[in-house]
Design a protein around this nucleic acid. Structure first.
Lengths: 206, 206, 206, 206
DNA sequence: GGATAAGCGAGACGGTACGTCTCGTCTTTTG
DNA sequence: CAAAAGACGAGACGTACCGTCTCGCTTATCC
């Protein structure tokens, strides 16, 4: 007997080639969602608005994404890669200064702001929280390489936990943006870098 | 046991005497709001629910607070003082370890979680953002005294900015709670304290 | 002399006296429902349409009536009394001929047609069926008086059941209207009357 | 090869022989439709439900029948012949008593109930009303033979219109089933038969 | 017996309607 | 006369269904 699935349809999901109606709708909706998110924020985002911007019927959105939350998450993830380029300047200090600078610039961006806000809101639902966790884990572990490289270069003791260090850098930035609303001015950024830089370098095996 | 905090820090609005019906309604609504906030979160909080819990009509709430946002802010501020006790153990390290420990404990509290969530959401509206700014300025400057005392004791150089330092401590905690959802375990807390402690101590006039 | 505006309530917003806003809304919606029912039939009746005709918001309709069925039933009952005038000509034959004539005329009316159609559709839901049952019981027992009067006059034996007799008269009419769609022409009506008239008169105590 | 309705009016489109996939689909869908109709009624019948029951895709149904109405009509006609056996007991009274008894039994059947309900609903659309008219004309003229035979036997005057007479018999039954929801108990049935029997027999040429 | 056309499975989509849930406003009634 | 009570306007949400469309594959018929 022949193996049953000799000519199985290659991929399981995206069977349509590229230009299918589905793909078109999906792209349009995602784009419209991000657009709406940027000029209006998460709170004033309605499916009806997205549908109109995308030139698509509301029901098509509900059919595919089920709920508004899913839509927003999908839209955001489709735009924001977790693989932001991590600076590699040759020294930890250079890396960190570049990193906070770039991070601050991104957070000042509407997209960056929306992303963080949405991430906070995702804490309400368990399954969304799960997605959120995966996203941040990846992003943080990515940024952690700055410290790993420093350790490789001998700039840092092996005892320094890259994970903690990267949160020590990023945490204050997010706190300002989300919680206190203060500006991410260079003095602040430099102060944070100084603290973490010295703080990690002071840690030794002993 | 309905005695509602007889010595609440003189509210600024209610000009009625303390025993009037108005005061009773106000207290009941505020209590109900916090209660509802705790079991359900901000997203699933409705004025109707609060009204029912408080045994009060919806219109009475709208008459007094105008909008849901105001109600929530008022309720939270009535419960959460900005004057949290800042540890004073005699050494910076002791202070910081006590501080992160207490902070983590409070954040694990439903009230603490709600407070931060609400604060994030307040970023949408300018006037709420203003209130938020005042709250955090006070709280942070309060906590900053730990570093000021250390400087006075000679543990720290005068060049260390207490404001930056306190955000370097608190930021990573809030980041975990709000953004990544990771646990505030002792290892993490110790790592943060170590980093900031060494980081600030390494800063000198030179 | 001013005809109408002598005493007060401004023509456009007649409140105070009998009609609060609620009453006004109720009346408008009921009227709009009947109107929509007449030009369009039951199947193509939408709450949105009714709301627009009534100048009222959809939610107000759902708030009060809960579901479309209830609305339709209420609207119909508010227009159609069960106390249709039963002919009293002095003889059974006169009564019956008048009765079928008037009944046929009413059935030819859009309202009459809609009423019967809706009544059939009400059979699906138990509670609606209950309302329906009460309506028809009353109407049939009302019409039954024609036969009771005839019995009193000695035209009919006491053994004749007025209930059965009235259904024998009305049944064929409804059957044509609802089921076969044939016209209720005079020949048919006369034939039915003849049959029932003779049929009942032939029944005796023996 | 369980041909359903051997005398269906020569299918217009699908001239496939008998065992093809098409025929299988058709039979399955029709059966599923009737089944769904019986447990749920016309109002709660959806194409999706029928498709699932039949193990067939929705599109296949729409392709063949175009619209739900057509499907229902086809399904019903495939099951219900218009050629119900008309009693022939030798006397008009015997015929009529058997007829009402059998009719009542059929109406008590889910299929019988559904059939009548659907027939009423068909009044909305002109073309469906046309089909309905043909069906009932045939059925009534069929039943009319009871009276024709009676006339032949001399039991009835030639002046009695069989068409009217049969509607006088059936009308009250349908009225109860469709409109008032009362039970078709023996007393009622006997009363109706008595009335029509005497009523028709009293009619003479004079 | 292989081309070929008719039909089917699968998956969206446009579109209409339904009924629910809030928010914040307005009117009516009541103490 | 002010607060309680109760609708109401407004608008979003999510669901159910109808009927349409496109694509790829499977049959059955026909040349």
């Amino acid at each position: 007997m022949d193996e049953v699935s000799a000519h199985r349809p290659a991929a399981k999901e995206p069977s349509r080639r590229t230009g299918g109606r589905s793909a078109r709708v999906r792209a349009a909706v995602l784009a419209a969602t991000v657009e709406a998110l940027l000029d209006g924020g998460l709170s004033s985002l309605s499916v009806a608005d997205v549908a109109e911007r995308a030139g698509v019927h509301q029901t098509s959105i509900y059919r595919r994404w089920g709920t508004k939350d899913n839509l927003v998450v999908d839209a955001l993830l489709s735009r924001v890669g977790t693989e932001a380029p991590i600076p590699d300047t040759g020294s930890l200090e250079g890396d960190l200064r570049a990193f906070v600078s770039e991070s601050a610039a991104f957070m000042a961006t509407p997209l960056g702001a929306a992303l963080a806000r949405v991430a906070v809101a995702m804490g309400d639902s368990p399954e969304l929280a799960e997605i959120r966790h995966e996203y941040w884990s990846r992003a943080l572990s990515n940024a952690g390489r700055m410290f790993e490289r420093a350790a490789t270069r001998g700039e840092l003791a092996r005892e320094v936990d890259p994970q903690v260090a990267v949160e020590a850098i990023a945490g204050p930035l997010y706190m300002r943006m989300l919680l206190t609303g203060q500006a991410l001015d260079p003095e602040f950024l430099n102060g944070v870098v100084d603290t973490v830089l010295h703080g990690t370098q002071a840690i030794t095996a002993g």
